[in-house]
Amino acid sequence: MTTLVIAEHSNLTLRASTLNTIAAALQLGEPVSVLVAGYGADMAAQEASLVVGVHQVLHADAPHYAEQLAEEMAVLIQKLATDFTTLIAPATVFGRNLLPRVAALLDIAPITDILAIESNDTFVRPIYAGNALAKVQTLETKKVLSVRPTSFEATAAQGGNASVVKIEACAAVRLSQFKSRDLASSDRPELAGARVVISGGRGLQSGENFQMLEALADKLGAAIGASRAAVDAGYVPNDYQVGQTGKIVAPELYIAVGISGAVQHLAGMKDSKVIVAINKDPDAPIFQVADYGLVADLFQAIPELTAAL
């Protein structure tokens, strides 16, 4: 009865989502191993060995794991699965891409995007963009799970002392090849893990006006997000999108600026600790989830707020 966490990492460091996933794995009460499969990923493996609660780190290193392609990773995890009763990954783009592939190879129905662990075999997950919660029980021989990182408080990154065991790579399957990755470079915190998130909507009226949010974000050390409407209007890139089909965030403070609050947007942010909405339309649905609502013209309110901090 042991649990294998599939680490999300950049070969150099663990992604924050891995710490949330380890926290969820520990809730299951079984010894937790962490798989770090990468290329030149010694540092990530070392980092995983220091995470509190980790029993052992399995480190597979090969060129075909460099980009952690699902086709390559799934075969490795399928092989390792014989030794584990539970496989668990973060419900990020990485985990969503990989985990169902693993589950199908094992002929196990997975449970994805878990918000809470009720018992050893029963889990709560959102359906209909979080407008309903389903309590789901698995009767499978193994559990293949993904957890929503924002629903599990990260375990401490330092203080553990697990052994790192080198494991053999599987032969490369080479079904697909990585060509390139184009990541937005920013000094700001990552949207998914930021303590403060400021999101802009259609009310910003242009991409240039997002600079107003930048000034505020600088003051608060915040990440910047956007509604689908703002992304569709071309104000900001796709990866800014918060919502059912974009990023799911749950920061300490979420400031929605000029966002009306479609259910698809609310799905991505309504678990934030404190929600502030600034909108000139007093009937905007965003006010129904806001802890603090300010009915105001954002073009006056945002500079004023920035100056007041």
């Binding site: 449970i111 959102p126 309903a132 919660l133 929600i275 603090y292």
Partner: peptide
């Protein structure tokens, strides 16, 4: 292969307040 035991409404956030100015918000 999975059994849905219960479908329920998500928890409701407690109602917020409307502030009248940026100063009050801060």
């Amino acid at each position: 292969r999975l059994k849905t035991l219960l479908v329920s409404d998500p928890p409701v956030r407690k109602p917020g307040i409307v502030v009248n100015s940026v100063t009050e918000l801060v």
